[in-house]
């Protein structure tokens, strides 16, 4: 009823809203090889959607298509209301992206990185200044504004990269193995940031190799050989396969994979 002031996080996440990602029979072929084979799903606003699969299952190809970086062969998909075939540039402007491999410029300071990304996404100087102050305050990094990013601990870099990817208030953020290599406490602190962003209405699309992190998602899809073999809440998947952990769900599905190269 009271949509503007949701009583709590759970209710706001469950609030009805149009899907932020829609995917219908989306397919990508490279010559004879079908990397992504007619996948269909929808992701709701504010949902934390886990995108899992074995190495070589087609996750990266699917994600590149949804980010407007790779043209699909056939099917249909929209991201933040834009069409992946016709409007890839608009998609790029309206999504956030962060991976373990690509995040911030090590040779720029914290403040310079924020200014650079703000500029790339078309934010005005005054807005960037305002957002920089708020961002550094929220992360407790005010004292590090003039520090080179390269000299920050990995955990701080990742939290900063995540916040910078949200600077232009995208409808959805794609996180490609964002927590690789960090210590177990920092990994959990990173998830606190994810929960906060989702509670604020940002849709989260995340890949991970940590199966405990699959449990933190609202829904999880598992790709095998280019197809989505399972898609449900973590509890639903465990029920479906009659196992106790997401690790077992994953092993059960991925073990039959043919494309492991």
């Amino acid at each position: 009823m009271n949509k503007l002031h949701p009583p709590d996080v759970a209710a706001s996440r469950a609030a009805p809203a149009g899907p932020v990602i829609t995917c219908e029979l989306l397919t990508k072929r490279f010559g004879d090889f079908v990397a992504v084979n007619a996948i269909s799903f929808e992701v709701a606003a504010g949902e934390i959607f886990g995108f899992l699969g074995a190495n070589g299952a087609g996750k990266t190809t699917a994600m590149r298509m949804l980010c407007g970086l790779l043209g699909p062969t056939e099917g249909a998909a929209t991201v933040a209301g834009f069409d992946v075939f016709r409007q890839p540039e608009l998609i790029k402007q309206h999504i956030g992206y962060m991976s373990q491999k690509f995040s911030l410029y090590e040779d720029l300071t914290v403040g310079e990185n924020i200014r650079f990304y703000g500029g790339v996404y078309g934010l005005k100087g005054a807005v960037i200044r305002e957002k920089t102050t708020a961002l550094l305050q929220r992360l407790g990094l005010e004292a590090e504004r003039n520090t080179l990013v390269g000299s920050l601990p990995l955990g701080w870099k990742q939290k900063l990269a995540f916040s910078v990817a949200l600077l232009h208030e995208p409808a959805v953020i794609f996180l490609d193995e964002p927590t690789g290599g960090v210590d177990p406490i920092t990994r959990r602190q990173f998830w606190d940031l994810i929960y906060e962003a989702a509670a604020a209405g940002t849709t989260i699309f995340i890949t991970t190799h940590y199966m405990d992190e699959a449990e933190y998602c609202d829904r999880v899809s598992i790709m095998v050989d280019g197809k989505i073999e399972a898609l449900a809440s973590p509890a639903g998947l465990k029920r479906q396969f009659g196992v106790a952990t997401m690790d077992e769900v994953f092993l059960h599905l991925a073990r039959g994979a043919k494309n492991t190269e």
């Binding site: 074995a54 190495n55 193995e177 290599g181 190799h209 092993l251 991925a254 073990r255």
Partner: peptide
């Protein structure tokens, strides 16, 4: 095993 999926890790 860094960056390797759960099946290959096992």
């Amino acid at each position: 095993t860094t960056g390797v999926d759960a099946v290959s890790r096992q």
